[in-house]
Each structure stands twice: as structure tokens, then as C-alpha cells.
């Protein structure tokens, strides 16, 4: 088995380096599939990520506030939501939304179903990050806000959340980067995002290794750029913290 695989790898490499026509074909395909892949990213992968993350963050903040609220009902709703989303695979959630719901008369467009699925997912995971960040702000900050006459929502908006966002940038960046890669699951519910484009092209010319590697490389580049953004954000928020 091992020998067999090594043999294939050797054949693949040999075919590239000893057969100029083969190499030319691969380069041709790589070049001609680059634009469709990028188009998939710009049309679907990036919008899916940005829209889902925005909706997800709002959902996450509301869920975090529900979890720390004194109203039992809100706490329970938030707990159930987080438990269901974190306890089931994303692929299953997307399948239910897109392939399952039509059974009860709810038909969603692929893109809509994907947005819904990813937003719910981000909402659940990020809510725990935001909850922890809010709880990490000293009680004295709430008291100081109260004593200068702020209401709960004013204190939250002006005093607590700005400080909590600093704490939550690294873990939220994790969530964001995971989301970029998770959008590839939308291929399963017929969204022609980047990975599905790769699948479609490869199904046509059988160059699976090349196309999936190409898609992988593009995901990696996106995530690398995002980690640069994360670094800048962290610097920006650290301006009011002692460097010592």
C-alpha cells in the first residue's frame, strides 16, 4: 500500500518534470481557474463571512447580555441556544436549514440558508467570548458609570463594551478566521463559493490535487491578511494600557 502510494507520487512528479506538455497543461489550468476561484471568493466567500460575522456579533452580544442578565427566562433561552448550536455539527445545521426546512414549507435560497447558519453559529460561539470579556471588566467600572448617572445601556455602550472589546479581539479573531474556512461548507448546500468552484472545475478536468491546493492557498492568504488586521486592531486598542 505504502509502496503503491509512493509510486503514484513519483509518477505525478515525474510527469510534471519530464513531460513539458503535462507541466504546461497544469500551469494553464492553474492560470485559467484562478479567476473563477477568486470570483467565487468575492461573490460568496467574502460576503458570507462579513455578513454572517456582523449578524453573528450582534446575536452574540445579545446572547451574552441575556446570559448575564438577572432575568431567569433570558438566561435559559440563551443557554439552550448556545447548547444546541455548539452541540451539533455545522454541516448538520446547514443541511437542516437548506434540505430539511422545505419539508415543513420553508424554502430558503442557498445563500440565505448559509447566512442564517453561519450567523447562528458565530452568535453562539462568540457569545461566550463576549460574556467572558464583559465579566472581566472590574465591578468598579459599573459603579463609576452608575455614580455619574449612567443608565444600564449607557454604561454598557460607553464604559463596559469598549473595554470588553479590547479583551475579546484575540478570541474573536479566532472565530472570524474559523468562519472564513467554515464558509467552504456552504458548497454542500449549493452556494458556488470558492471551494465549490474548485470542485466544479476539478470535476471537469480531474486535476483535484491542483485545484484543491489552489483553493487552500487562497484561504490561507485570506487568513494571513486577517491576522495582520488583528495585530493592527490590538495595537490600536492597547493605546490606553500600560506597556510595562
Amino acid at each position: 500500500m505504502k509502496f503503491h502510494r509512493n509510486g503514484l507520487a513519483k509518477m505525478y512528479l515525474n510527469s510534471i518534470f519530464t513531460n513539458p506538455e503535462r507541466l504546461e497543461r497544469l500551469l494553464d489550468i492553474a492560470q485559467s481557474s484562478f479567476l473563477p476561484l477568486l470570483e467565487g471568493a468575492i461573490q460568496y466567500t467574502i460576503p458570507l463571512t462579513l455578513i454572517s460575522f456582523t449578524i453573528g456579533l450582534i446575536l452574540a452580544t445579545l446572547t451574552a447580555l441575556a446570559r448575564i442578565s438577572t432575568v431567569k427566562f433570558f438566561q435559559i433561552i440563551a443557554r439552550i441556544y448556545v447548547s444546541i448550536i455548539r452541540g451539533t455539527p455545522l454541516l448538520v445545521q446547514l443541511s437542516i436549514l437548506f434540505y430539511g426546512l422545505p419539508t415543513v414549507g420553508i424554502t430558503l435560497e442557498p445563500f440565505t440558508a448559509a447566512i442564517l447558519g453561519f450567523s447562528l453559529n458565530v452568535g453562539a460561539y462568540a457569545s461566550e467570548v463576549i460574556r467572558a470579556a464583559i465579566l472581566s471588566i472590574p465591578k468598579g467600572q459599573w459603579e463609576a458609570a452608575n455614580t455619574i448617572g449612567m443608565s444600564y445601556s449607557q454604561a454598557l455602550k460607553r464604559i463596559i463594551l469598549p473595554q470588553a472589546s479590547r479583551v475579546s479581539i484575540p478570541p474573536l479573531s479566532n472565530t472570524f478566521i474559523s468562519l472564513v474556512k467554515d464558509t467552504s461548507l456552504a458548497s454542500f448546500i449549493l452556494v458556488t463559493e470558492m471551494f465549490r468552484r474548485a470542485q466544479e472545475i476539478a470535476a471537469f478536468n480531474y486535476e483535484f490535487l491542483l485545484l484543491y491546493s489552489q483553493a487552500g492557498l487562497l484561504y490561507w492568504i485570506f487568513c494571513f491578511l486577517l491576522s495582520l488586521v488583528q495585530g493592527r486592531l490590538e495595537n490600536r486598542f492597547d493605546r490606553y494600557v500600560s506597556k510595562a
Binding site: E143, A144, Q163
Partner: peptide, 13 residues
């Protein structure tokens, strides 16, 4: 208005 033992200034301002 209250003045606190640990100041409780808003660190981001």
C-alpha cells in the same frame, strides 16, 4: 457624586 478608594477612572478615556 462619589469618589472611590480605587479611583475607578475609565481606563480607555
Amino acid at each position: 457624586a462619589m469618589v472611590f478608594q480605587h479611583y475607578n477612572l475609565f481606563p480607555h478615556m
